[in-house]
């Protein structure tokens, strides 16, 4: 009996508490920077695509929503010929971001992706590419890679020694 009265009183006190409702369209929720939302493809500091078409994201994807085809330009730099994410399948698990060796594919805090037509949820490369470096500014895979893909000469990369002349390595 006493606990009932206490319950009523405690409920009454909630009248003076702040409401927890966020009035969504007018009032946006604050999402954390690492919140897993829409998937984007980022660019390196020089404006080139970071994606090297290694297929690791497509392999890691548990729902197989990523499809891509790798190709090379005349300098031997790999890039995806097409890159397609079917967001009607995507479960925003972020495995693709974990798998990516070049920080190219990233999940950003944006969830407002409502569409009337299911087909509109299939994003092509031009929809996915953003003109930004995302969460990892200053990183350029081809600057630290050993190969010359038109970004830097062999041996001129960061923390990279000059190539060794193998003929001078005689015992």
């Amino acid at each position: 009996m006493f606990s009932h009265i206490r319950t009523i009183w405690l409920t009454f006190l909630h009248l003076f508490k702040r409401h927890v409702t966020i009035q969504y369209p007018e009032e946006k929720i604050r999402l954390r920077p690492r919140w897993r939302g829409r998937i984007v493809l980022t660019k390196d500091p020089d404006g080139g695509e970071r994606c090297v078409g290694c297929y690791l994201c497509a392999v890691a994807c548990p729902v197989d929503c990523i499809a891509l085809q790798a190709t090379e330009d005349e300098n031997g730099r790999r890039y995806p010929e097409f890159f397609r994410i079917n967001f009607s399948r995507c479960i925003f698990c972020g495995y693709c971001e974990d798998a990516c060796p070049t920080y190219a594919i990233q999940l950003i805090p944006d969830f407002e992706m409502g569409e009337y037509n299911r087909q509109n949820l299939v994003f092509e490369k031009e929809d996915l590419l953003i003109n930004s470096q995302g969460k990892y500014p200053g990183y350029n895979f081809y600057k630290v890679a050993g190969m010359d893909a038109g970004v830097k000469q062999k041996g001129e990369g960061e923390n990279e020694d000059a190539p060794v002349d193998v003929h001078s390595l005689m015992p």
Partner: peptide
């Protein structure tokens, strides 16, 4: 009811 349940 909403007020007492911290809603709007």
């Amino acid at each position: 009811l909403a007020m007492w349940q911290d809603r709007l």
